[in-house]
Write a protein that binds this DNA or RNA. Structure first.
Length: 887
RNA sequence: GGGUGUAUAGCUCAGUUGGUUAGAGCGUUGCCUUGACAUGGCAGAGGUCACAAGUUCGAAUCUUGUUACACCCACCA
């Protein structure tokens, strides 16, 4: 027996446990050759479920549940990411509370601490995904620092190194002075700031009183200047090229060089060059042979290569002092207000400092080539397709990828240094020692590289490392290539692009997925990005508590129109909660009426046209949902799929079918009652199946609670397949006519203020035999739904009647003295006016020879049909108006 | 500086290859405690599809331009 109301809070956890225990999520449960595979975008092990995760995982779960029901061997591969910087930060913060730093512990102990933290409180997001209903194969859960995945990382690193695609280089990198590590270009955020442009006069050597003015937004770097550049064609400075300036405060003699980088239009046309602290200057320095003097330490404080007065100063403190000191020397030419972009570390939030260091790089430009080709050839496609261009733009201009990080938490780089600096890159320490012995001819002491790899390096391997690679496991054979990757656009470069590169390189030129579905961002109700600092973050778990996971999921999927952001609306979530209530009550109604599928019942061989009709409507709904979801054409239209099943359930099944079913339920025709009971139960079952991927909990609960005996849970039941004959067009037309008649009567009644409860007579004139037959057969239904007391066919019309035309027949509701004649006249007049306007348009169109000549025949015929239909209607309406006028 | 996207009812949004009297949900108005459901039912009001020009027999839909907003990328001192 169903409870009077549905309380998701009481059933969701129970059902999720049941699914887990029955191993409903497990891959391989179904032995089908046809595999369907999605790898989850692994959330950070430090993460908490936010709306973006909720959307992302809801969409994945919809596809996974859909394909599972369709009989495929489904693998939704879950796991978490070790998230180098984020995780290290969390644990360091905890240590800081005890007054300890990671250096107090030492590397080994610190990493142990992180593992402890991970075991105890890491991965709470997994439990939160359970709340959402995510049907991942949890027994296969992976972590990017697992032994297996780490092995894959080492193998990839070593192989790429042997192929020359990973190399070590001394280069200027983005240095994060807070975390003391290099970061990649992608982890740098350019932010616009209001600052100043300082103009300094640098004295020319040997020319008393002559200066060259340079402008800078970073005065502190002047201590590292090793030259001044002017444009080779700049007439103003031609005579100065080759001469020297004496760098103020430092006293260094630095050359004036000619380089095209200097823009004569900018400032004075002369630019100071600091090769060690600016990417452009580095290039200029290389071209013109300038010295490279690094003036900063890892904290971005000035080092010992600057004059004593500045040593140890923090860079922004130094800036103030330098400006003041230059001013004191009389060399501060001017200060202008200036807005420019400044690089910030995306996780640390501090200004990034270009710093010259030894780092490991991946040759992204080479790895990108197959990845570009795969998309060009259509082997992997983006949905929506506009993201293809974003991908191309980035891939075609890709820079070397700095993959080393000066952190402790992560995959340690498998490189060992010999006593003379020789590097041995091997998968294991033993192999490194063996290689060293072979090289040196004797045993030597090796030191492993202290650095770890960029977190995204291991994520790039996720689609095959989680399947067991480098071992050739059955899962790898069956589930690689995976099907669709579902993610947000902000991760295309970080992750998608790199998975493409690695997947193609290591998996025999087969891309990791055939489709990349890029979903929207979830914004707040005002359209603003959600962020902690704005305080507008909505916790999905709070919404789940309040309205149930199904309501949140349905909101997200019905909002997931391609190419458009999702605006969170609690009101809409509430609306979908109401939908679960509606479904629940429909099921209760069926239960009360003892609906059950009788033995031998064939849904496609019912007698009652109402039943024949609803079976056809089910088939249409299923087709709409399936076609919207399937990836074959332009699938992944989650909003279309959700809306189709919503509209069918509420507006067709509940609003019409169940109302119609009350007639046989309350009547005494036992055969009709039996058929309708079976049909109702059958349709309800179909709804539960079709709705299950979207609303897994309420559907499973109903599936298990309503009277029907089940072999298995809904989650592992079969997605329905209907015969061609499921749609009976004759029944569809008949019900369409019936609904139009009822709606027409209701509208007239409502508009003319006939009391809702009043039962009134009906006169039906000028209808076809088919219509008369329908009226007679469905009279019970029509009289109930339209509140009628009697009917007469082709009868004389009493003077005072409400009248309208339905499908060519005149429908009259005699009210005698009870009706407002003037109001009815006005109503009919308005109706006629509207119809005439409509016909004018049609006549004009059909009178246009060019239209008739050039439009497709079907379109022209369609317009003609509309016109003749309208003509009949107009004639009848006019008759009605005349009758009224006689009064 | 380069690129992408969006503009349709009071609000949030659908509208697949150009052919409807342009749809939904929420909100709103009126009526209804009708034996599943007031977290409900029935009926209604509400739109010159941002603006301008063009292509076409026909444009919310295609082209160009304008305006507004959003986002991404980029080393301009």
């Amino acid at each position: 027996m169903l409870d009077k109301s549905y309380r998701p809070q009481e059933v969701e956890e129970k059902l999720y446990s049941r699914w887990m225990e029955s191993k409903a999520f497990a891959c391989g449960r179904n032995e089908s050759e046809d595999a369907f595979t999605i790898v989850i975008p692994p959330p950070n092990v430090t993460g908490n479920l936010h709306m973006g995760h909720a959307l992302n995982n809801t969409l994945q779960d919809i596809l996974v549940r859909f394909e599972r029901m369709r009989g495929k061997d489904v693998l939704w591969q879950p796991g978490t990411d070790h998230a180098g910087i984020a995780t290290q930060m969390v644990v360091e913060r905890q240590l800081a509370e005890q007054g300890i730093t990671r250096h107090d512990l030492g590397r080994e102990k610190f990493i142990e601490k992180i593992w402890e933290w991970k075991e105890k409180s890491g991965g709470s997001i997994i439990g939160q995904l359970h709340r959402l209903g995510a049907s991942c194969d949890w027994e296969r859960e992976r972590f990017t620092m697992d032994e297996g995945l780490s092995k894959a990382v080492r193998k990839v690193f070593v192989q790429l190194h042997k192929e020359g695609l990973i190399y070590r280089d001394k280069r200027l990198v983005n240095w994060d002075p807070k975390f003391h590590t290099a970061i990649s270009d992608l982890e740098v955020e350019q932010k616009e700031v209001n600052s100043h442009m300082w103009h300094f006069d640098y004295p020319i050597e040997g020319e008393e009183g002559r200066f060259i003015t340079v402008a800078t937004t970073r005065p502190e770097t002047m201590l590292g200047d090793t030259g001044v550049a002017v444009h080779p064609d700049d007439e103003r400075y031609k005579d100065l090229v080759g001469k020297f300036v004496i760098l103020p405060l430092v006293g260094r003699r630095i050359p004036i060089v000619a380089d095209e980088y200097a823009d004569p239009e900018q400032g004075s046309g002369a630019v100071k060059i600091t090769p060690a602290h600016d990417f452009n200057d580095f290039e200029v320095g290389k071209r013109t042979g300038l010295d490279v003097i690094n003036i900063m330490d890892i904290n971005a404080c000035l080092n010992d290569d600057v004059p004593e007065a500045y040593r140890g100063m923090e860079r922004f403190e130094a800036r103030k002092k330098i400006v003041a000191d230059i001013d004191a020397l009389g060399l501060l030419n001017k200060i202008e207000d200036h807005t420019h972009t400044v690089p910030y570390g995306d996780r640390s939030g501090v200004v990034i400092e270009p710093l010259l260091t030894d780092q490991w790089f991946a040759d992204a430009a080479t790895l990108a080539q197959p990845a570009i080709r795969a998309v060009e050839k259509g082997n992997t496609k983006f949905v929506p397709s506009k993201w293809t261009n974003t991908y191309y733009d980035w891939m075609r201009n890709i820079q070397p990828w700095c993959i080393s990080r000066q952190l402790w938490w992560g995959h340690r780089i498998p490189a060992w240094f010999g006593p003379d600096g020789m590097i041995f890159v091997e998968e294991t320490e033993e192999q490194a020692y063996a290689a060293a012995k072979a090289h040196y001819g004797k045993d030597v002491e090796l030191n492993q590289d202290e650095d770890v790899l960029d977190t995204w390096f291991s994520s790039a391997l996720w689609p095959f490392s989680t399947l067991g690679w480098p071992d050739q496991t059955p899962e790898l054979a069956k589930h690689y290539q995976t099907d669709v990757l579902i993610t947000a656009f902000d991760i295309i470069f970080f992750w998608v692009a790199r998975m493409m590169m690695m997947g193609l390189h290591f998996m025999d030129d087969e891309p990791p997925f055939h489709t990349v579905y890029i979903h929207a961002l979830v914004r707040d109700e005002h359209g603003a990005k959600m962020s902690k600092s704005k305080g507008n973050v909505v916790d999905p778990l709070v919404l789940i508590d309040e309205y149930g996971a199904d309501a949140l999921r349905f909101f997200l999927s019905s909002s997931a129109a391609q190419g458009r952001d999702v605006r969170l609306s609690e009101q809409r979530v509430e609306g979908y909660r109401n939908f679960t209530t509606k479904l629940w009550n429909a099921a209760r109604f069926c239960e009360m009426n003892e609906c059950a599928i009788a033995d031998g019942f064939d849904p496609f061989a019912t007698k009652d046209p109402v039943n024949r009709w609803i079976v056809g409507e089910v088939a249409k709904c299923e087709a709409a949902v399936r076609e919207a979801l399937e990836g074959q054409r332009d699938g992944y239209r989650f909003n279309d799929a959700s809306n189709a099943v919503y509209a069918f359930t509420w507006n067709v099944f509940c609003d019409w079918y169940l109302e119609l079913a009350k007639i046989p339920f309350q009547g005494d025709d036992e055969a009709a009652k039996l058929e309708t009971r079976s049909t109702s139960a059958w349709v309800l079952d179909q709804i539960l199946k079709i709705l299950h991927p979207f609303m897994p909990f309420v559907t499973e609960e109903l599936w298990g609670t309503i009277g029907t005996k089940r072999d298995a849970d809904l989650i592992v039941s079969d997605w329905p397949v209907y015969p061609e004959t499921a749609v009976d067009q004759g029944a569809a037309d008949e019900l369409d006519w019936l609904q139009g008649l009822v709606t027409g009567i209701r509208a007239v009644r409502s508009e003319m203020n006939v009391p809702a409860g009043a039962k009134i007579p009906l006169i039906f004139n000028g209808g076809t035999d088919v219509q008369k037959d329908r009226l007679a057969r469905h009279w019970d239904v029509i009289s109930r739904l339209a509140r009628l007391e009697s009917n007469a066919i082709d009868a004389d019309l009493p003077k005072g009647s409400l009248q309208f035309v339905h499908d060519g027949a005149t429908v009259a509701l005699p009210l005698a003295g009870a009706m407002d004649l003037d109001a009815e006249k006005a109503r009919l007049g308005k109706e006629i006016g509207k119809l005439e306007g409509y016909m004018t348009g049609l006549n004009k169109k059909l009178g246009n020879e060019k239209f008739v000549a050039s439009a497709p025949e079907a379109v022209v015929q369609g317009e003609r049909d509309k016109l003749s239909e309208a003509e009949v209607k107009l004639a009848k309406l006019k008759e009605a108006a005349e009758r009224l006028a006689e009064l």
